[in-house]
């Protein structure tokens, strides 16, 4: 009895066979990023700091009265948003930039978007140095709830992987996905309450932002643990985990079903 190999390959679980490749790809991304400039790591801290300062100057007059410790509020929102959007943007290219490789070798195709999201997450963790600086500088208190940071990050990571898989497969067939997504993320940024308090929104909008925007849910949880010093509500955790699971399952399923056609389009 011979085994039909095509039934064995192509599933998501194959990524575990290639876990050493994931480490290689992620360390390549980080090495190249930080090797290229002496200021590599400094940039990943300086960049969010500078953006925060600009936004602070622009928006402090508008919202400072409502939001205590505005710099920390702003930076948390910005950092989480940047992680999700930056990582999904890089994941989108995952298949198309590795076209020449995928035409010549068999590799689990999940590896490339996955590696991009993972290196995005490492970047995000490194850029928290900026948050640390701002916390110290503004003499903000440190809370024990900050230790829950890995849980929030994990939710956002799984959500981002799912969205990344979806975008990566779509970009293979439609190269203008990038532009459509760019317009979409601009709207998404304004809907994520990064630089304004969510309660200035009219009720119907507020419901949309609080319940239908996973990025806001993760930002809110991050603010709970690092800005307010309280535990995220159970509802928020359930919703956050549910969105992560939903996007992950959808992303993996769609990617898996479309991957055999990639070769015809890359």
């Amino acid at each position: 009895m011979t085994l039909v190999r095509k039934d064995k390959s192509g599933g998501f679980l194959e990524v575990f066979k290639y876990k050493d490749l994931l480490i290689q790809l992620v360390s390549r991304d980080l090495k190249l990023k930080y090797r290229r400039s002496v200021l590599g790591y400094v940039w990943s801290i300086l960049n969010p700091l500078l953006i925060m300062i600009v936004m602070y100057v622009v928006f402090s007059k508008l919202f400072d009265r409502n939001i205590p410790n505005f710099p920390v509020y702003l930076l948390i929102g910005r950092t989480m948003y940047d992680f999700v959007i930056g990582a999904t943007n890089k994941a989108m290219d995952g298949i198309t930039t590795n076209a020449s490789l995928l035409k010549k070798t068999y590799v689990s195709k999940f590896m490339f978007p996955l590696a991009k999201v993972t290196s995005g997450m490492v970047d995000y963790v490194l850029s928290l140095g900026a948050l640390l600086i701002v916390l110290v500088f503004t003499q903000s208190p440190f809370y024990w709830t900050m230790l829950l940071f890995p849980i929030v990050t994990l939710e956002a990571y799984i959500f981002t992987c799912g969205l990344g898989f979806f975008l990566a497969q779509m970009h293979v067939f439609f190269r203008d996905t990038r532009y459509i997504y760019h317009a979409f993320t601009t709207a998404w940024m304004y809907a994520s309450a990064i630089f304004y308090p969510v309660d200035i929104l009219p009720d119907w909008m507020r419901v949309i932002v609080e319940y239908c925007n996973p990025v806001y849910i993760y930002i809110k949880q991050f603010r709970d643990i690092a800005y307010s010093g309280c535990l995220p509500s159970l509802d928020s955790i359930i919703l956050g985990v549910a969105y992560a699971a939903l996007f992950f399952v959808l992303g993996v399923t769609i990617f898996r079903d479309k991957q055999d056609k990639f070769i015809l389009y890359i």
Binding site: T2, K6, S9, L101, K104, T105, Y106
Partner: peptide
Amino acid sequence: RIIKPYKGTVNVNGTVAALIELGAG
């Protein structure tokens, strides 16, 4: 396994090293 055929069955039993283009990757 780089291309899946439109029709037909493929049975391959064993590890494959493909030297289709050296230096891919």
